[in-house]
Amino acid sequence: MKSALRAYLLLTPALLVLGALFLGGFAPSLLQSFGYFPAVGMTEPTLSFYREVFGGREFLPSLLFSLRIAFLSSAGAVVFGTLLALLLLRTGRGEKIEGALAAIPVIVPHTVAVLLVLNLLARTGLLARLLFASGFISSPDGMPSLVFDRGGLGVIAVYLWKGIPFAAVVVYVVLRNMNTRLWESATVLGASRFQAFRYVVLPLLLPSLSSTFVLLFGFSFGAFEAPFLIGPTFPRALPVAAYSAYIHPDPTFRPYSMVMVVVITFIAMLLVYLYSFFLAGEERAS
């Protein structure tokens, strides 16, 4: 009992800040989503904004778009990140300059990453210029749409560029701490390298991979900058749609925005639950 008291005492500053700011910040959004917004004379709580948003023509495409880019980018980041980590380990360059270089995208903010992707993949970007120089396309119009496209490839590219090194760092640390003899003895026993990876290493990596996947998924689902800057006009990612409704000149539109904010928060909280579940697994594994 005394240790519980001590624990809570130690946690007080952090919980106070997070509790007050996070919940205090979310509560008005929740109220406004139910049409309670006295500042513009809306005082009757109603579910009609939820009905209207859910029934609107852009909500579902937006939600699906956000889920899609989040899924593809985080799955890609985990797969390629694992590959990069294995390469760093195999070549023994993980602790050398290559390892440090590979981690650079982790510290570059998303806004800059957007600029990088634009410079490379836009219709007059470096890739298009290279394709032109080698005769594959004859004009910018011949270039397939990689940014501002409805599939969100540009947005995914931003998240991949940031996510792959992040996943690689996580996986690299786990692999390095892993008993390498496990892997070696598996190969000695006649397993192919792939089999050894598949049946020996992968199961041990799985908790870290899952938690990294959920973390990246959650981040790219809720983040606003990348889809705002290089997302398609339709469908807009859910956070972008929410933001656009927020800055609508008519303030009575704000509840529509807040409905989307509440949906984003709800999904994010589900992911938080999943994340802490996987983290617990990770701790048991280590």
Partner: peptide
């Protein structure tokens, strides 16, 4: 807050 975006609050 690692996962819940700033837009929420």
């Amino acid at each position: 807050p690692v996962i819940v975006p700033p837009l929420s609050y």
